[in-house]
Amino acid sequence: MSEYIPVLIMILLAATTSIAILLIATFIGPKKSFPEKMQPFECGETPIVSPKLRFSVKFYLIALFFVIFDIEAVFLYPWAVIFKELGMFGFVEMMLFIGVLAVGLIYVWKRGALEWE
C-alpha cells in the first residue's frame, strides 16, 4: 500500500491549493448585490423559463450506453495485460465477448438511438 501514500499526499496538496484559491475568491474582492445584478445571465432579459426543466431523453440514453460499454472496457483491461500468455484461447473468448457487444452497438445504432437530428 505504501506506493499509494504519495498519491494521498498529492490529493491533499491539490485539494489544499483548490481550497486556498476558493478562499481567496471568497474573501478578496468587492461584494455588492442588488436584485437586477443577481439575476442569472440571460442576455439582458429577465429569465422567463427556469432551467430546472425536463431535458431530452437522448442524454439519458447516452448515460445508459456509457455504463454498458465502459463495463466492457473494464473487462478488456485485465485481458489485454495478460493477452500474450493466454494465447489463442483468450483471443477467441474475448472476440466472442466483443462480438456480442458489437451486436449490441449495431442494434442501438439501427434503432436510431445515436441519431441527434
Binding site: V7, L13, A14, A15, T17, S18, I19, I21, L22
Partner: peptide, 10 residues
Amino acid sequence: PFISLTCSIV
C-alpha cells in the same frame, strides 16, 4: 471548480 482543478492536478 474545486473538482475540476483538484482532479486535473492529481
